[in-house]
Simulated assay, not measured.
Amino acid sequence: MATQGAESSTSIPRQVVGGLQRPLPPLAAPPQDVSPSSRAVVRERGGRRLYAIDGIRLLAALMVAVHHYAGTNRVNQPGNLVWDRPVSEIMPTVFRFASYGWIGVEIFFVISGFVICMSCWGRTPRQFFTSRVIRLYPAYWVAIVFTTAVLVALPGVWDTLRTRDVLLNFTMLQSGSGVMNVDGVYWTLWSELRFYLLFLVVVWSGLTYRKVVVFCCVWGAAAMLAPVAKLPLLDLVANPSGAWYFIAGLALYLMHRFGQDLLLWGILAMAWLMGQRELGVRIDEVEHVSGWRGSVLIFTVFLLAMVAIALGATDRVRWRWLVTAGALTYPLYLMHYAAGTTFINRLRDTMDARLLVVSVIAGFMLLSWLVHRFVERPVAGLLKRGLDTSFARLRNAGG
């Protein structure tokens, strides 16, 4: 996004042309790490809200929801517990498109890499930790209570977990303890948490262009080696199935903040090449219902859209409703799957299947707004004040 604030004449590199001093093009100099004197200018460039990303977030969440309701291998089996017969027979056109909706998860990972890097720039590890807690936990706690209540009240589609396992889910660390998730979609949170833990090391050392580039290269190398090294700890930390999507997001943010260069394009190209392979692996091992070519095409179009956002092509997008749309995506993602398929099971004979899918999604979007408005916002404020007070006390404590 181009800087629109005025800079002092001494801060802009110049060249002499025809006896006159003229500013160099923005990309004439390589990216520099941000010095204190230039930090305000960069913050002005990177601090403006990127509304287009909020729109893509909502699109990705809707893709995943439609996929779970009408595009998975599970709902396309004869006698499945959601529709009772293959969804490809009930609504073949919807199934054809919905079968690719799982790519919304990979889109989330790329956006996460971009947004986390953007929101953490100039922050301390304490601020990074606080921002992640208040962002992730309030809606997540509500989702656990809501989903568990629905599965208990409407049994027969999904099994409910033991009380001890439901309680452990409140930590968001259940995958690390070998405990099942209350809702299957929570598996992505385990990937996110591992990314945050790795990136916290860079935040602790102080974010700079050079350090983030090195982080991308080191993490990419570890993710590349993990599958052949057959070391469980390396595989756990490197997260080879998700690493390249986060790396793509980090590279895109560096393009946004410092401008493009060959090294960043190279990192992005490597992320695309490794990512397309991971798409194929997921199709072969999990999804089974979509094709590799279509998946790669969708993912490529999305990456190109993110490149456009990073380079400022969408700066004029200022639709305020996109802010609300972006706020709905996290609670919508957390609550839609197990509870939503349970509702479809109970309502499938009451209306047209396509109308039912649209109605269930609309209902969850309304519920997501209520969670955001009446839970996320007030609870996040309480948590932030409590954590700030706790860290202040810890900092001032002696010994």
Rank of each mutant, 00 (worst) to 15 (best):
A243W: 02
V145T: 14
F343H: 02
S205H: 10
T160L: 15
W272S: 13
W292T: 02
E278C: 12
L394V: 00
M63R: 03
A65P: 02
A60N: 06
V110I: 14
R373H: 11
L59E: 05
L189I: 08
M63I: 09
I56P: 11
D284G: 14
L263Y: 03
R48V: 14
G312N: 05
V358H: 00
V42S: 08
I298A: 06
G46T: 15
R393N: 10
V203S: 06
I361P: 00
M91F: 03
D165M: 09
Y245K: 02
W190I: 07
Q21H: 10
Y196N: 03
G184P: 05
R132G: 14
P232S: 08
P378L: 01
Q127H: 02
L198H: 11
L167P: 01
H67I: 04
V323R: 13
M306A: 08
I103H: 11
V182L: 11
G47E: 12
V379K: 07
A139C: 13
I56A: 15
V179W: 12
P138R: 13
G156K: 04
G79W: 06
V66A: 15
P155E: 15
R282D: 11
Y209K: 06
G79A: 08
W102A: 07
G55T: 02
V166E: 01
D315I: 13
G363A: 07
G104C: 15
A397P: 00
F146N: 07
A40Y: 05
G156Y: 06
E287H: 09
A65V: 12
W292Y: 03
V17K: 07
